[in-house]
C-alpha cells in the first residue's frame, strides 16, 4: 500500500508544480502586457544578462568552433572528405552549437544569479515589502528579467555564431593547412538564412526558459540560506534540461516541415 501512496504523492506534487508554474507564467505574461513597464530595470537587466555574458559566451564559442574543425578534419580523413570542414563547422555552429552552448553557459551564469537574488529577497521579506509599497513584484522583478533575457539571447547567439566560425577558421588555417579565403568563402556560400534564423529562434526560447526558471525558483524559495541554495541549484538544473529538451523539439519542428 505504501508503494501506491508514494506514487500518489509524487503525482500530486508534480501536478501541483506544473499548476504553480503555469500560473506564474500567466501572471508574468499579463504583467508584461499591462502598464507600468519598468524600462530602466529592463535596461539594467539587458546589461547584466546580455553584456556581461559576452566574455563567457565568446570564449566557449571560440573553443567549440576550433575543436569542431579539428574533429571533423580528423574524422573525415577516413573518407577523404577533409574539404568539407568549413561547411560542417558553419552548419553545426549556427544550427546547434551556437544556441545550445550559449544557452547553457547563460543558464549557468544568469539563472543561478537570478534565483539567488530573488530567493534572498524572498527569505528576507523584500518581496513582501514590495507588495506593501503598492508595487507588483512580478512586474517589478520578473517581467524585466524575462524581457531582457528573451531580447539579448538571440544577440548573444549571433555573436557566438560569428566567433564560433572564426574559431574554426583559426584552427583550420593555422594548423590544418586550409587557405583562409577559400575557407571563408565556402562557409559563407554554404550557410543559408534559415540556418541562422533557426538558431536565433532557439536562442529566444532558451532566453525565456533561463529567466523563467531563475525567477520561478527564486520566487518560491523557502527557509533561509539552504532554501536559496536549493533554489539556485534547481534553477540551473531545470533550465539546462529544459533547454536541451526544447532544442530537440524546436529542431524537429523547424527542420522537418
Amino acid at each position: 500500500m505504501n508503494f501506491f501512496a508514494t506514487i500518489g504523492r509524487v503525482t500530486l506534487a508534480a501536478f501541483q508544480q506544473i499548476g504553480q508554474l503555469s500560473l506564474f507564467i500567466v501572471s508574468s505574461v499579463t504583467g508584461l502586457l499591462r502598464p507600468p513597464i519598468y524600462w530602466r530595470l529592463i535596461g539594467q537587466q539587458v546589461l547584466r544578462i546580455g553584456y556581461y555574458s559576452l566574455p563567457v559566451v565568446g570564449l566557449t564559442a571560440f573553443f567549440t568552433g576550433g575543436v569542431l574543425a579539428l574533429q571533423i578534419y580528423i574524422g573525415s580523413d577516413r573518407y577523404g572528405a577533409e574539404a568539407f570542414v568549413p561547411q560542417i563547422v558553419v552548419l553545426g555552429i549556427t544550427r546547434e552549437l551556437g544556441p545550445v552552448i550559449a544557452g547553457l553557459m547563460v543558464a549557468g551564469r544568469v539563472a543561478a544569479a537570478i534565483a539567488a537574488e530573488l530567493g534572498t529577497m524572498r527569505v528576507t521579506e523584500q518581496i513582501d515589502a514590495l507588495t506593501t509599497l503598492s508595487t507588483n513584484p512580478i512586474k517589478y522583478l520578473v517581467v524585466p528579467r524575462l524581457v531582457a533575457s528573451v531580447l539579448t539571447l538571440p544577440l548573444l547567439v549571433a555573436i557566438a555564431d560569428s566567433i564560433g566560425v572564426f574559431g574554426g577558421y583559426i584552427v583550420a588555417t593555422k594548423s590544418l593547412g586550409f587557405n583562409g579565403y577559400v575557407y571563408l568563402k565556402n562557409s559563407v556560400d554554404f550557410v543559408t538564412n534559415e540556418d541562422v534564423y533557426s538558431g536565433l529562434i532557439k536562442a529566444a526560447v532558451f532566453g525565456f526558459i533561463i529567466a523563467l526558471m531563475g525567477c520561478y525558483n527564486g520566487f518560491n524559495s523557502k527557509g533561509g540560506a539552504q532554501g536559496v541554495g536549493a533554489a539556485t541549484t534547481n534553477a540551473v538544473v531545470t533550465a539546462s534540461i529544459l533547454i536541451l529538451a526544447a532544442n530537440y523539439v524546436l529542431t524537429s519542428v523547424i527542420f522537418t516541415r
Binding site: T124, E125, Q126, D128, A129, T131, T132, L133, S134, T135, N136
Partner: peptide
C-alpha cells in the same frame, strides 16, 4: 494596490 496605499509596514528584519 490602491488599498495598500493606506498601509505602511515595518518588517522584522527591516527588509530593505
Amino acid at each position: 494596490d490602491a488599498m495598500l496605499k493606506k498601509f505602511g509596514m515595518l518588517f522584522q528584519a527591516a527588509a530593505l
